[in-house]
Structure formats: C-alpha cells, structure tokens
Nucleic acid binder design. Structure first.
Lengths: 343, 343
DNA sequence: CTGAAAGCGCTTACAG
DNA sequence: CTGAAAGCGCTTACAG
C-alpha cells in the first residue's frame, strides 16, 4: 500500500527515490546498501544516510525475484488451540526469527481439504519450506501433493520413512517416569494410562513397562489400565488400583490431568502424597500441575526444543541436506511435590 | 527454490513456460488466466489446461509488484503461549484465511525491542496491515514507529484514542456474572477478584458492583477481595468470606482458577455447590472448568469473535475506512453445574 | 568507482 | 482477439 502525500512523494520510499535524492544511479544505491561491493566509502556513507532519512526498507518481495528464495516458511498446524502445537510453533518461530526468515501461519483445523488449500496458497507465495505440526503423536499421512520444497513433520511424524519428522521420545519418557519412581524405592507401582487410541498413551506405557521388567517388577494388577485423559478417570482408576493392592506406593499417570485426579482422590481418601504414594504425570501443563495439591512432578516433552529442531532440519533441507527419518527429542523430568523417596 | 529435472525444465513453472507450451505470448497467458479479459474462449481453455498440467501457480510476490498489495498481514503477539492470544489469533487467521490473505506470525515475547524488530521485518515484506495482540486487557502504548499501513490492536487496546482497538467487554462481563447470580435468587454474594494490577480484574468487579448496587445489595464484607489468579487464593478467600457471613449463597470469581479453588474448598468443607452456594468463574478455560466438581459455570470472552472482528476492522482500514476507537465484543454466559436457582 | 542494461515473474495499457 | 512494450522494485554481470 502506497500513500501519496502532499508533495506527491511515496510514503514508502523505493530505491529510485534514494538514488534521486543521493544523485547517483539505482545500481549504485543497491551496491552501497549491500556491503561486499566496491563502492566509494563516501558515496556509501551518503547513500546509507539518505536511505535512513527516507525510511527506505528494501522490498523483500522484489529482492526474492532474484535470489530465488523468499526467506519465508509455512507453519501448517492442524489445531491452533491445541496444547501441544503452540509450544512447538513457539520454538520454530524462535529459531526462524533469529535468522531472517518470516513464518506464515495456517490453521487447517484438522481438515485435509483445508490443508491442501493452505499448501497451495503457501506455494503461490513461494515459501522456501514447510513445517507441518500435528495435534497428536500418531503418525499421519504425508502431504499428497508433490512439492518443490522441503517439508518437515513435527510432533506427529509422517508415516513415510522418506520424510523428515521430529517427535517426542515418548517411549523414553515412559522409561524416565518409571525409573524416577523405582529410584525412589517404589516397588508397588500402578499405571493409569490415557486413551489407548493415542500412540502417546501406548508408547509411554511401553517405556515404563520395559523399566519395570528390567527390575523384575510388574504393574499393580498386572498391566497398565487404559481409560481417558481426564481427571475423573484418574480418580476412579486410582481407587480401583488401591482395591487391588492396598499397599501400592507409586502411580504413573498418562498425563497431568489424570495425575491431578489421582492426587485429589488420594488426598480426599486420606493418603499421604508423596510419602505413602508418589504420583507422576506427563506433559507438564503448568496450569494443572502447579495448582495441584501437592504440585505435580511430571515429564516435560521439551516441545519448544522440538520446534527449534524442526526449524533447523528445515533449514538444512532448504540448503540441500535432507536428514530423512524420524528424529526424537528427549524428555525432561520436572520434580515437584508429588514424588519423593519412600523413607 | 527451483529444482531442475532431467529435461532441464524448472519444476516450478513460470508464466513463460506456459506461454511456450501453449504457443502464445506471455501476455495472452496472463489474460487467459485472469478472467475478465477478452480472450478467445478456445485459447483460454487451452491455456488453462496447459497451466494446470504444468502445475503452474502464479508467483504472488511478482504479482504484488503491480497491485501494490501483497495480500499478507502481520500478526504480532506478545506471548504466544498465552491463553488469551491463541483464540484471538485463531479468529483472525480464520477471517483472513477465508479471503485470499496469508498471515505472518511474530512473537515478540513481551520485549519491545523484539517487537520493533519484527515490525521492521514485516514492513520489508510489505504487509498490507498489522494486528497487535496483547497479553492482558491493560491498555498498551501504541507502536512508536510511524507506519505506512493500518494497525489494529486486539485484546489489549492502544492507549491512544486515534488507534483502532478491539477488546472484550469486561465491565459487561462482570455485570452479566452478577445478574446471573441475582436472577438465581442469590442475595448474599461474595466477590473473589484476581490481581488488582490487571484491568480485567477491576473491570469485572466494577460491572458486578454496578449490578448489585442497582438491586441495593452489596458484597459480603462490603467489597470485592482482591488477590491473585490462583486456585489457592480462591480456597483461602472463600473460607474467609464464610467466616464473615456463614449464610453466603453466591460467589463471583475473577477467573476460573479462582472458582475452581472455591468449589474445591466448599466441597471439602461440606457445602453443597450449587444449591447452597453458587459459584461463577470467568474465562471459560475448558481444561479447568469442565474438570471441576461440579463443572464451572463461567463467562466466555468470545475471543475468537474478537479476533475475527480485528481482522474485519483491519480489512476496512486497508480499504481506507479507519474505524478508530475501541470496539467491544460482548461476553457469553456458559451454564454448567456450579450455579443453579436457590430453591 | 559508477552507471546503463538486462532480467527476475508478472500485469496492463497500447497497437495492430 | 493477440502480442510487443513498458514497468513494478530490485540485483548483478558488464562496460566504461
């Protein structure tokens, strides 16, 4: 948008305005502003001076016509209101923003038609690459269009091994969780898992199971209890587990909502958390975890780091180095009040 | 990024490739693809056919050199992880996405240096306009740079009356909350407010106070109790209020976290929510509100609508119609289990 | 060291 | 109806 003022000059100056004001040619202005070109130091100084006084900002759209790169990237999410995609996006935005690239945000709202539509729009803007961030850890179908630019799948991996994906190490997270309880001398551990249709739920259970087995332990009741991701499920399930083993001393939970339900039920039933029974969640949802009584120990997925990695992998791919395969980011134990040594 | 295949043809076709393949001039292709130009129907059909087979997508960057508009807009947020900015952004993205405009996302992280940096980057990309999404309802200083493009402030209004701002009607929200309790035959109402340095806290109290006064009522203890936005504050404050008036029959809370603390404390102390004491929150944070026992009635700020309005106002401004001033969006009562008629 | 020219991918009067 | 030309804002060999 160009606004013309009284004197007829454009409010957003072009390189020609600068050239005219400096009394040199357009090409000289271009070189003077670019560094790395041989230009008389005085000329350069004067041009820069004038460019600044005119608030000249080179038009990146025009520049990109030459470089072939636009310095833009598309971030395509399937659920903007998702608790998982936001931190991933923050990380990516952060990694890109430091360089010179700007990110286009598109929300497909879980609709593949909408997704295609957005991809086309992004292509017409000649983005240099694409990050597809998913809303669950379940693998997803790769984009159906053949794209002339690199794509990185974040959080939800592509189901194709030839694509570039970055995910959380949920199996490792499960292991990390179990090891934390085991190292706190807990040996009667129950597992209250989330919705079994979610890969995150089963992966976490798998990791935890492996750790128990390594210690020749097994879960209270023989195996993990699957349900939903809610507090209510946590409350109900923990009471059931206690009816199976009244001496249970540790509970692993599929996420923090479940864990919160568990600590609420235990407190109401007169159990001492964390001394008698330690409780560990997943996801580190601050809103829930910090306000619980006691505040929840939990496993953080390092989602911002995941987003940063996705950005880095995309950079590499844009530079021709496609690191195909699924890259995992390590999780991190957050120690709060719901876990402690037994004695 | 252009990938060259075996035959030497560019993978991302240009208008010249189409022209060559169709045996017509570049200008004819341009017109054929644009509709609204007089072109032989057969030529047009053939050109479209070929364009499609070549996967031709016009380069919007190049197009914008002529139109003066890029069809892009900047969304500058001060806290991407904020619970408030996300829905606002969703609304804006939604309103823009339906048209032909793409949105650049920038997260300033509450840092005004970073903000300036992002604004400059956006300017160099020649965005047609800017939406500044705040992280609280407190008015903020307008952008210091003089911009050649329109700006809309969302959620946090600009402190300048000459700017365009869209906010939630928090005074109205407070009124709506109080009227809901009053119409449920509650007449001994306490108010547990949030952090008094937040405009949202004081606005909501102001609205509720006005409604009570209109009924010749006053809050338990004479006035609202300010504290923090936490569950713990809610638990402590409600017990204090009960010590002041053991017959209190309604509690208005500054947000849902406070309300959740309140219902927890009441349940633990043996009060019947909602019959004996009704409790109402603000913000409609699903994660907290739906999981509370009972689920929380609350006031929703319609943030997506706020975002959509911001987008519409920006559209208008880009078209030359700057609706300056502060536009309010109405809030909405969400009725769940924590409020009910008294008898 | 500086500038005229060609060109990036497209559009739009203007001739024919 | 079609195409050659000029131009949008910039960059980059190429002469001078």
């Amino acid at each position: 948008m160009t606004i013309i003022n009284d004197s007829g000059a454009s409010l957003t100056a072009t390189i020609r305005d600068v050239a005219a004001a400096a009394g040199v040619s357009v090409s000289t202005v271009s070189k003077a502003l670019s560094d790395g070109y041989r230009v008389n130091p005085e000329t350069r100084a004067r041009v820069k001076e004038i460019a600044k006084s005119l608030h000249f900002t080179p038009n990146r759209q025009a520049q990109s016509l030459h470089s072939g790169r636009t310095g833009t990237v598309g971030l395509l999410t399937s659920d903007l209101d998702g608790r998982f995609s936001i931190p991933v996006m923050m990380g990516a935005e952060d990694a890109f923003g430091l360089g010179e690239v700007s990110v286009f945000l598109c929300d497909a709202r879980g609709d593949s038609i909408r997704e295609q539509h957005h991809v086309r729009a992004l292509l017409s803007r000649r983005v240099d690459g694409l990050i597809i961030v998913g809303d669950s850890t379940n693998p997803r179908d790769p984009l159906s269009l053949a794209l002339p630019i690199p794509v990185v799948y974040a959080y939800a991996p592509s189901s194709s091994p030839d694509d570039i994906s970055v995910i959380s190490d949920n199996v490792g997270a499960g292991r990390q969780a179990a090891e934390h309880l085991i190292s706190s001398q807990r040996d009667r551990i129950g597992y209250i898992a989330g919705d079994p249709t979610f890969r995150a739920a089963t992966d976490r259970v798998a990791g935890a199971t492996a750790s128990l087995v390594a210690q020749e332990l097994e879960f209270v009741g023989g195996s993990a209890l699957y349900g939903g991701w809610t507090e209510e499920w946590g409350r109900n399930a923990v009471r059931h587990l206690l009816s199976v083993d009244s001496l249970m001393d540790g509970v692993l939970c599929g996420n923090d909502a479940i864990a919160r339900g568990v600590v609420d039920a235990l407190r109401e039933d007169g159990y001492d958390v964390p001394r008698a029974i330690s409780v560990l969640g997943h996801d580190n949802w601050e809103l829930i975890a910090t306000q619980a009584r006691p505040p929840l120990s939990t496993i953080d997925m390092n989602l911002e780091e995941l987003g940063r990695n996705a950005a880095r992998l995309l950079f590499r791919a844009i530079d021709g180095d496609r690191a195909i395969g699924t890259h995992e980011v390590k999780t991190r134990l957050i120690h709060r009040g719901s876990t402690s040594p037994k004695y």
